[in-house]
Amino acid sequence: MTTPVQGHHIVRAFSEELEQLTASVATMGGLAESLVSDALDAIAARDSDLALDVIQRDKRLDTLQRDIERQIIRLLALRQPLASDLRVCIAALKIAADLERIGDLAKNIARRTRELNEAEPLALSKSIERMGRLVQGHLHEVLDAYASGEIGGALGVWQRDDDVDEHYNTLFRELLVCMAEDPHIVGPGAHLLFIAKNLERVGDHATNIAEVVHYAVTGTELLADRPKGGSSGTP
């Protein structure tokens, strides 16, 4: 993570440890993004093997998160980071938690994809994939913002999260209509519903990361009155 302060610490090992921490979070981000992307590919291609691969690779994300937590505890105990350094540490801690949750959600999507592949394909899978690509794009943008310290991308995602919510609300209504018309698709439809919900949650985590990146870079919080779109009453 790059903050406006570029100078090196007098104690060089401190700078190296912070760089290592940022690199670990970036690795974790790359993996989380690839899990989401592969889960979406698995839906599109009805590829159960790829879905299984996603389920298995999620474990690596958990290991990375524990490693990042250890690094941060060590930094706090031994270096007592302050100001931008402190913000970088806290940001890494929070982002790692968000990425771990994103991994879990991707894993859950992959599990449901394997179930879906047992049934006839549904037309709405395409809409799910579109929503998924939008969410994946948001995740990519906030991770870029994290790596570069350029908050523009983070702000953009933060402002555009209601696009995801709108997609989700539309899908939700369409799925309800389809399931009401044809009771045979209630089983796979329910899976799609949960997949859509999971993707919406991934979008929320991307928004969280955007807020954390903004705090780490500027030291100020984004105000909580993010534009909220969509109708109420949707779970």
């Binding site: 100078g7 610490h9 302050l82 100001a83 931008s84």
Partner: peptide
């Protein structure tokens, strides 16, 4: 947590 001047930031973070 959020010093505004670069000199404060450098001193506090040991740069």
């Amino acid at each position: 947590t959020n010093p505004r001047d670069r000199r404060t930031q450098d001193y506090i973070t040991g740069r």
